[in-house]
Design a protein around this nucleic acid. Structure first.
Lengths: 245, 245
DNA sequence: TCCCCTAAGCTGTATAGACAACCTTATACA
DNA sequence: TGTATAAGGTTGTCTATACAGCTTAGGGGA
């Protein structure tokens, strides 16, 4: 294969397969081209194709079965490994009714503080979301999210009347690294009003940056009224991390 | 290389290097044999040596520098897996001065709320500690800890003028499971006074139960003034877990 | 019809050889 | 002395080839 870019060949093969998975062309359980098919299609050696598929398997995207083939892994395995849960699922799992109100949704130019979070220049175009989540009608979370479309290919093409941006991100973008900061804050009056809490009541503020392939996909600040929500996690320090609701 | 076992060659090379690291023969920062040296020493091809070293690097054991060599990684990266750090180390790592004041230390009979945390009957004998941690003289954490001596053999025999109970627990009890609950609270006047914060100022409350062999070793509630402390963690969902201070 | 065997395709591993990029060190030159 | 250059070692990548073990599909024989 001719050298078309600086990145190594096996990486380009990985990107190619990954792109087909994330675009939905290769859905969960679907068969991925075999090593020899990749050799023919992309003009690389079999060792290079093997390395690409092997690493994608190691990263949890694929399942390989000797003598049979390579398949796209079911997503739930790699999705919510640590505390990455849809709040809607969390609420309904408790038997309560979840409802959400979109406060803001659309493209914005990054303010300095946001741009710094992404490590990008001020003014870069980001998708901004502000959603108020309610449990049985009572506000429990104010979600303030920015998404970098460059790191989440296909994001802009979604129809957000059918799927929430958060659901889409969870399902389609493979997050491989998370950074959390948790603080206790007293929210500004506007946010306190949205959350329907008394002035001076503390809130948990969870700031999270999600990385995929070394790039920041989305930065979110989740504001929880202290009286209505506590963060909870349980996991073992052994092989695989795991949390309980 | 002759086939001596069922495991693949690259795995045997990995095991060989790993064994030399874990035995202490190859300490942190030491140079690991180069790929060509491994080729000569173990009679494998360079591709096999390369795969072994590459995977050990991916797993966080080694550092590779193109044109220079391969080195054993400093252990701190893969050591304490998740958020279990001594606050004293954390503070001194920031270049600040840590001091601690023991508010309470001794055996107590468990009150109902505490007994429930341990899943033990009310009145069971537990060690109770209350310690105020300061950073450069300013209170940053109020530690309220109970220890079940039955699950932490040797705890009672320690001389706590020489080693803090927390240090001893970290070093001597293998914690294999953690449960965290994080809340935002406004502390009671007594605790607010200890922490030297204004009335009404929110605090982060981190409640943690540590399990060892299925038994609860210690239950701790850590109270952080919101204005002086934020919980922070960063980790990857891939192979090696990693946290930052 | 049923069963066995073979062939083809797949993954997994291993090797030898090659080139590029990078770093360090020694050497030659000004 | 100081600088530029060359050499050699190191990692990183890519290719072509080979063999083993596994699974499935299909064909031939009883």
């Amino acid at each position: 294969m001719m050298m078309a870019a600086a990145s190594p060949l096996y990486q380009r093969v990985k990107d190619h397969i990954l792109q087909r998975i994330q675009s939905g062309e290769l859905g969960p359980g679907k068969r991925v081209p075999s090593e020899n098919e990749i050799v023919g299609a992309l003009s690389v050696s079999r060792m290079t194709a093997n390395r690409a598929l092997r690493e994608l398997t190691e990263q949890g995207y694929l399942d390989r079965v000797p003598g049979v083939g390579t398949f796209v892994k079911e997503p739930q395995a790699r999705a919510s490994l640590m505390e990455l849960k849809n709040i809607a699922d969390e609420i309904t799992a408790r038997g309560a009714i979840h409802s959400a109100e979109i406060i803001e949704s659309g493209y914005v130019e990054a303010k300095p503080s946001v741009a710094e979070s992404f490590g990008k220049p001020v003014g870069v175009r980001l998708y901004h979301l502000q959603i108020l989540h309610r449990e049985n009608g009572l506000p429990v979370q104010l979600e303030d999210r920015y998404v970098d479309e460059a790191a989440a290919p296909g994001f802009g093409a979604q129809d957000f009347t059918k799927i929430t941006p958060t659901q889409w991100l969870l399902a389609c973008v493979p997050v491989d690294e998370l950074e959390h900061t948790v603080e206790a804050v007293v929210p500004k009056p506007r946010k306190a009003r949205l959350l329907e809490i008394d002035k001076g009541e503390p809130c948990l503020s969870l700031y999270r940056r999600s990385f995929s392939q070394g790039r920041i996909v989305t930065v979110v600040t989740l504001l929880y009224p202290a009286s209505r929500y506590a963060l909870h996690s349980r996991y073992s320090t052994s092989p695989q991390g795991r949390i309980s609701p």
